[in-house]
Design a protein around this nucleic acid. Structure first.
Lengths: 227, 227
DNA sequence: CGACATGTTGAGCCTGTTCAATAAACGTGG
DNA sequence: CCACGTTTATTGAACAGGCTCAACATGTCG
């Protein structure tokens, strides 16, 4: 990527402990539900959460995965419009929404975080609207590779080793995140293994990518910059 | 495509605080493209825009509709990651991104706006991931009814009159927004007309909803608040 | 008025769904 | 540490919603 032009740089390593309350959560614990008053926002430090919406007939869509460094609990109105549960046990810092106004530093960080989330949601819209089942699954696995950003991926390297992934979601949760059914996710993963893109461990949640770059290409994560 | 490093900017008379520069745009005009430096944000006053992403194989996904009162042009990094075009001619106020830092009032408004957009993107994720073609199309039409909010819709009123909609998008654009094909959108609209939910005018862009509430119910816009 | 973009409709196909049966992993208590 | 019940995952067969390809109709605008 080229040099950034001068943009406001947020205080990156601001020790956030100054303003929030530290708390921890267990696996599958619910942090909030649709309809609950949205009085605070949650900055995840360790572990992960997911946010989803339910239709009255039972259909479910996971709308966000929240990982360390992410903030969630934003709401348009006074109440949450979705549910939030823990995928893996962890900790977060809770900030009172009211206190945002009085803390320019927190405001700054929130803006930066919201930019990132909007961008991620745009990406997910492309996945849900225009990608095949295989591309969706590959795309999710790529998302879980630590320290991977498509832009820093050199085009030329055909093989870039293996990568072990920790996949904390069940097949059903993956399906609800990717807009597929549980069965399709299952078949797609099996197919990826048969085609040598990944290996599925016998312990749940273990996936090894055979070649990160090959899988990345399959995911068609790229977006066209031409027009 | 990309600008070189930040050139010294010619001095420009500082605009009145909290107010950016007013500009107008024509139908189909491009406001920015993926890869352009993201130096300002756009507050739409009149008309409408849409933001989309292209995959290298030509697939397209419209990720946002931007209407009066909305702000767009946020970016995670220094460059835009999507394209923005005008759906209808209009005007906007351009704010320099750098000036955000120094204006708490603007910052406040941005936070509010971003909350709204995240919420809208969550809603759209449900539409793309879990709704049928009919529900998607109905949902979009409902979105275009002015002054409609599902929460203020009394349950009991079976018929709540007609509503004329101005639909500025082509069938192809609707399709790219809803994750469908042009043909499916066409068939679905025809079907909605046959089932007496809407009437399609002979002039393009004219749609009349026969009964707002009936269509709203069809869209299954509701989200379950139980568990 | 005429050319071209946009919209409509049909037929057949394909990807992903649904329903159903089986297998494997987890975790709890003895 | 193992047995057992429960949850989660895998696989198959048949189906269907939406897609593709194609022909034709209607609006729009110079």
């Amino acid at each position: 990527m080229l040099q950034p032009i001068a943009l406001p740089k947020p205080p990156r390593s601001a020790p956030p402990a100054a303003a929030g309350k530290n708390r921890s959560f267990n696996k599958r614990e619910s942090l909030f539900r649709a309809g609950d008053p949205a009085t605070q926002i949650y900055e995840v430090v360790k572990g992960s959460l997911f946010i989803y919406k339910l239709l009255s007939d039972g259909r479910r869509q996971v709308v966000e995965l929240v990982r360390p460094g992410d903030i969630c609990g934003f709401a348009d109105g006074p109440e949450h419009d979705s549910d939030c549960e823990a995928l893996e046990a962890g900790t977060f810092i809770a900030h009172e929404r009211i206190s945002i106004q009085s803390s320019p530093a927190l405001q700054q960080r929130l803006l930066r975080q919201l930019d990132r989330r909007v961008s991620a949601l745009h990406h997910q819209a492309v996945t849900l609207g225009r990608r095949t089942a295989t591309e969706r699954v590959a795309s999710l696995i790529m998302q879980l590779v630590s320290n991977h950003s498509p832009s820093q991926c050199p085009i030329a390297d055909a093989v870039k080793g293996e990568a072990a992934i920790h996949m904390p979601m069940t097949r059903g949760e993956i399906a609800d995140y990717l807009g597929l059914t549980l069965e399709t996710v299952c078949r797609t993963l099996t197919d990826l293994e048969r085609r040598n893109y990944i290996r599925i461990g016998q312990k749940r949640g273990e996936i090894t990518i055979t070649s990160v770059c090959r899988l990345c290409r399959l995911a068609k994560t790229d977006v066209c910059m031409n027009g």
